[in-house]
Design a protein around this nucleic acid. Structure first.
Lengths: 252, 252
DNA sequence: CGGCCAGTTGACGGACCTCAACTGTAGTGG
DNA sequence: CCACTACAGTTGAGGTCCGTCAACTGGCCG
């Protein structure tokens, strides 16, 4: 019991995740049906179609939400970073899969006791509600990207999102015009997130590099040299309106 | 006072919308800062960037959520039918616009009193939470459509969604293999919803018609002749894998 | 009748996908 | 140490789906 208690006290997301809404006493009760897990990249957390038996808090790292297609391709419909929450709240079955995108630390909660606990703690449900609303907002932004933007803009949007992560976590200063980070994804994963192929993603990386908007010391090592310009590209309204340097021009 | 009370009592969504979570007394309190509105198609409910001052219940008809692009194009990121809910719950400003898709009856609530009221009525927040979770689910399905499906599949998916509406509202029997309904949207609106152009939408309608999967007595009057087949097309995993009849084949 | 708008259909070009060859890096084993 | 494999990533060639532009049809209304 004491062990559980102290486990939560040193939790990295005690004050910013789900649990931030709970006092110590409630947290202790919650911890009784929670379990900590560490996963390696690509380990499956739950699978599309499975019965939803647990909820998950992301304490460190990131997980990806995936819809699988019959031909082996997949589409990534969401990324959840720490502090984050995943799980099917109303359905009995999962409508998508989840797997570790990086090395991940999770806190898993058995669904039934959690649901009961949640009813007794409206502040917890409110917290999950907040998370869901934000998720819906980013999901709708992504719909615009998938529905209306060309590959160049999509990749720019993706890199911008990655850079924003740095600022959110305080790992970089938002008023600077550059950013530097390690990509935790392969070109294929990025493609599956952007609705493109890995070749197209690679080409757009190369273009951005040639335009000196980014630099690639190695393929996973991204330096954004001009964040403002990248932002302008990502928000360009239509592809044809944008003045951009494509392969035909470069080869001319 | 009595007028307001009786107004809610005859409300078509009293027992299925937001208010279904409330007893008569709470409903009376809510009605004090609510107002009923009727809008014609294309009337704007709120605009992207505006301060969010109201929430809305959709009592009859449908509204569309829209992101506008600089070039005059727009992308429809969601449709909300009765009974439904719209409004920006956490942000101070709207991140998208909303307008009447059909003739619409709304119930609008001033945001500040509603937020206070909601805190005192967890069952209301729970209801909104439920609606948000479902919205997120359909949003993620739509991401798959936008990211991975070809125009033929998208249009099939759209028509299927329209048909599902009939079954949900009880206007048709779900075990039948056909459906018949009036489209409340122009080809352009459908295109803006599917991330296509109106010409492409029109072509796919024509293809489906030639395949005798649908019939079009008039352009807005859709008869789905083979719902199962339409469903199979909509869920086809990749475009290239699908055996479908395209223009090249038809012209051969 | 003419004007207007929604919708259809055709011709053409371009962006992206497919297939394929190649490079670079890391790991394994002789 | 080098050969060999395996895999991520890059780059090229060619084809196709869909967007663009344009002409045409049909219904509606003054």
């Amino acid at each position: 019991m004491h062990g559980i208690r102290s486990r939560c006290e040193i939790c990295p997301v005690r004050n910013c995740g789900l649990c931030a809404s709970l006092d110590d006493q409630a947290l202790l009760a919650l911890s009784k049906f929670s379990r900590r897990k560490t996963l390696k990249p690509h380990e499956v957390i739950f699978h599309e179609g499975d019965i939803s038996s647990h909820y998950f808090s992301v304490m460190a790292g990131a997980i990806k939400l995936v819809k699988n297609l019959a031909d082996g391709h997949q589409h990534i419909i969401g990324l959840i970073y720490s502090p984050g929450f995943a799980g099917q709240c109303l359905n009995s079955h999962h409508t998508y899969s989840a797997e570790a995108a990086t090395e991940v630390e999770l806190c898993s909660y058995s669904r039934e006791p959690f649901d009961i606990f949640e009813k007794a703690h409206p502040e917890l449900e409110h917290k999950i509600f907040e998370i869901t609303v934000r998720e819906l907002d980013t999901c709708r932004d992504w719909m615009l990207l998938l529905g209306r933007k060309c590959s160049y803009e999509r990749v720019a949007g993706f890199l911008l999102m990655m850079a924003d992560r740095l600022f959110e976590t305080g790992a970089a200063s938002p008023n600077k015009n550059y950013a530097h980070f390690q990509l935790p994804f392969t070109r294929l994963e990025i493609a599956d997130y952007l609705g493109l192929t890995l070749e197209t993603v690679s080409r757009q990386f190369s273009l951005l590099k040639q335009e000196k908007i980014i630099a690639l010391p190695s393929s996973r090592d991204v330096v954004i040299a001009d964040l403002q310009l990248l932002g302008a590209i990502a928000n360009i309204e239509t592809c044809s309106n944008s003045v951009r340097f494509d392969e035909t021009r470069l080869s001319a």
